[in-house]
Each structure stands twice: as structure tokens, then as C-alpha cells.
């Protein structure tokens, strides 16, 4: 019961971060600030969802697999973030002031 409550809390927190990430991507003024919102908020959101699911996981291997998925997304999105930012800079997209 306690664990269910904690999972629920973590899930809701994760959803809020995903919402914030998407809102940031829609509202922020240029590609760099959007990357900030996307990378940071979504990774924290996914981390919280992974934590919530790990609490409910039937076996330790499943916990490990969830963490593995999170780590892969972490690596993939930091890499994408850096590459997209670099591309934008080299293409001469000036940062919004």
C-alpha cells in the first residue's frame, strides 16, 4: 500500500516533468533554450517514471533493465542535444537574447 502510494507520487511527478518539457519545447524562444527544456526535464521525468515502475517490478533483473533503458536514453539524449546545438550554431542560428 505504501509502495503503491510512493509509485503513484513518483509517476505524477514524472508526468509533470514531461508536461514541462513539452511546454518548454513549445514556448521557449529559440532552439537552444528548447534543447535545455527538452533534455533536462524529459530525463528527470523518465527517471521518476523508471523509479516508480522499479518499485513495482517483480524481479531485480527487471529493475536493472529499467535502469538500463533510462541510462541509454540519457546517453542518447545528451548526445543528440549536443549535436543539435552544435549544428544550430554552425548553421549560424543566433541565440535569443
Amino acid at each position: 500500500m505504501l509502495i503503491d502510494g510512493l509509485s503513484l507520487l513518483l509517476l505524477i511527478a514524472g508526468m509533470i516533468f514531461f508536461l514541462a518539457g513539452t511546454l518548454g519545447v513549445l514556448r521557449f524562444p529559440d532552439v537552444y533554450t528548447r534543447l535545455h527544456a527538452l533534455t533536462k526535464a524529459d530525463n528527470v521525468g523518465l527517471g521518476l517514471i523508471v523509479a516508480a515502475l522499479a518499485l513495482q517490478a517483480p524481479a531485480w533483473a527487471v529493475v536493472g533493465k529499467l535502469i538500463l533503458v533510462w541510462l541509454l536514453v540519457l546517453v542518447a539524449s545528451t548526445l543528440s542535444c549536443h549535436l543539435v546545438a552544435r549544428t544550430a550554431q554552425r548553421r549560424g542560428v543566433t541565440p535569443w537574447q
Binding site: 519545447v25 527538452l38 523518465l46 523508471v50 542518447a76 539524449s77 543528440s80 548553421r91
Partner: peptide, 25 residues
């Protein structure tokens, strides 16, 4: 810019992963 569109594709990837993990449960 093209970079903005690519960034959206990255957003879809992360969201889809979270979605799939939830559906798996």
C-alpha cells in the same frame, strides 16, 4: 529551423520510451 524539427523528433523518442514502459506494466 531544421534543428527545431530534429529536436522534436528527439522529444518523441523519449516520450515513446516512457509510454512503452508504462504500457509494459
Amino acid at each position: 529551423t531544421a534543428a527545431d524539427r530534429m529536436l522534436a523528433a528527439q522529444l518523441f523518442g523519449t516520450t515513446a520510451v516512457a509510454c512503452l514502459l508504462l504500457l509494459a506494466e
